[in-house]
Simulated assay, not measured.
Amino acid sequence: MTNAPALTDAAAPRLAAPNRVLAVRRLGLVPYEPAWALQEELLAATVAIKTGNRQAQAAGTAPAPTPNHLLLCQHPHTYTLGKSGKPEHLLLDAAGLARHGATYHRINRGGDITYHGPGQLVGYPILDLDNFRPDIHWYLRTLEEAVLLTLAGYGLRAGRIAGLTGVWLGWEEGASNPRKICALGVKCSRWVTMHGFALNVNPDLGYFGHIVPCGIADKAVTSLAQELGRPVPVEEVQERLLPHLLQLLGATTA
């Protein structure tokens, strides 16, 4: 029995070097649907590159690097329901939505219902996790950790609650008033992510009263402004969070 010959350098599959550069877009206040469409466009373009790279590997030609994007924005009053969510967790009918100037969208991320609105920092990373670490649980914990470090910079000791994605105050076991300050919901296609996190900075928390937030009926929602007792600019929080996320990912900006 003879051993198969080893692949020569010319015959070995060629892999693209990991690209850990993020193209960051600060979109400001933008309606939900255009931001969602932009995410879908960027994800589709990245998946198309990855499909082409598989063909390039088979042909022994050089693959192309895949891009990474980070969209930072706020939305007008919006409710979104994830794939596993229950429509009854929205407590407003069409007339009620209109009275509150809010829109409603059923979308393709995981999770239940959540609220987006002015004063909330929303981050949509469209990352090829093959450039970082192809592990969705690691990715979610990384987003949470960036928020935890940001809140620590404001003197808040936030944390996680076992079995509940997101970032919480009053998270310690036995705490009397657990309250969520940041929600997470993502989609991943061929290790390319979309959707992301929503950190309550200065939103009108009354809008959370029209849903069962993330399907959790027995816990409260809070904001950075409510916890500190003063307003905080969303742009300030945005620029404090970005370096933490970059460091945790081992990434740089374009």
Rank of each mutant, 00 (worst) to 15 (best):
G28M: 03
A23C: 08
G153D: 11
G123C: 12
G117A: 02
L148G: 10
E88F: 11
G110H: 05
L143A: 03
Y79Q: 07
T114K: 06
G111M: 04
W138H: 11
R99K: 07
T51K: 06
H137W: 14
A35R: 05
R54M: 14
I49K: 13
A59L: 14
I49S: 13
L29V: 15
V122S: 12
P125M: 08
V147M: 02
Q120S: 05
A152V: 07
R109L: 04
L121R: 06
L71Q: 07
G96P: 01
I126R: 00
A56C: 05
L71N: 12
I107W: 11
E144Q: 03
K50T: 10
T114L: 06
D112P: 06
L92D: 08
Q55C: 11
A23G: 13
Q55G: 09
L149Y: 01
V24N: 05
G60P: 04
A95E: 15
E144W: 01
P118M: 04
Q55N: 07
A37S: 15
A23H: 15
Y139N: 01
P31C: 00
L143N: 06
Y124S: 01
P67H: 04
T80G: 00
H69R: 13
L29W: 06
I107N: 05
P34Q: 10
L38P: 12
R54D: 14
R133F: 01
R109G: 09
Y115A: 06
S84W: 13
G123K: 01
Q39W: 01
P63V: 14
H89F: 08
R157N: 13
T114I: 10
A59I: 06
A94L: 10
F132W: 02
T78F: 01
Q55V: 15
L127W: 03
G110L: 02
R106G: 10
L22P: 03
L140D: 07
L149D: 10
I113F: 02
R25K: 09
P87A: 12
Y115G: 07
P67K: 09
L29G: 03
F132G: 06
L70S: 11
L71S: 11
L72W: 01
P34D: 08
T80E: 01
L92S: 08
D112L: 05
G111C: 11
A56T: 09
Q57K: 05
Y124L: 03
